[in-house]
């Protein structure tokens, strides 16, 4: 099961999520030095809301705001759930 959403355009991010034995989050952001913790928090909070624990998430961030990151993650999750 795998889902991808978003893009690598500026102010956007590309998120991939797939099932995994444990929760793993990988963040590559052009603004990571300044916003890594904030991006991580958005991803973790969203996964908690969705009660997803055994997933691997990869975020390729091009300066997306929090709501964009959350949106892309939610779409990726929906797409993963449809991917059976």
């Amino acid at each position: 099961m795998k889902g991808t959403a978003g893009s690598k355009e500026s102010n956007d991010c590309l998120i991939t999520i797939e099932s995994s034995v444990e929760r793993k989050i990988e963040i590559n952001s052009i603004v990571g030095v300044f916003f890594y913790d904030q991006i991580l928090k958005v991803v973790e909070d969203t996964l908690d809301e969705q009660e997803l624990y055994n997933v691997k998430v990869i975020v390729e961030d091009k300066g997306a705001l929090d709501y964009t990151i959350k949106s892309r993650l939610l779409t990726a999750i929906e797409r993963m759930r449809e991917d059976v």
């Binding site: 705001l65 929090d66 709501y67 964009t68 949106s71 892309r72 939610l74 779409t75 929906e78």
Partner: peptide
């Protein structure tokens, strides 16, 4: 379509 709807939703509720 799904991606856009999610983005607009989160934009409207949190921006």
């Amino acid at each position: 379509k799904d991606n856009a709807r999610n983005l607009v939703h989160n934009y409207l509720t949190t921006s």
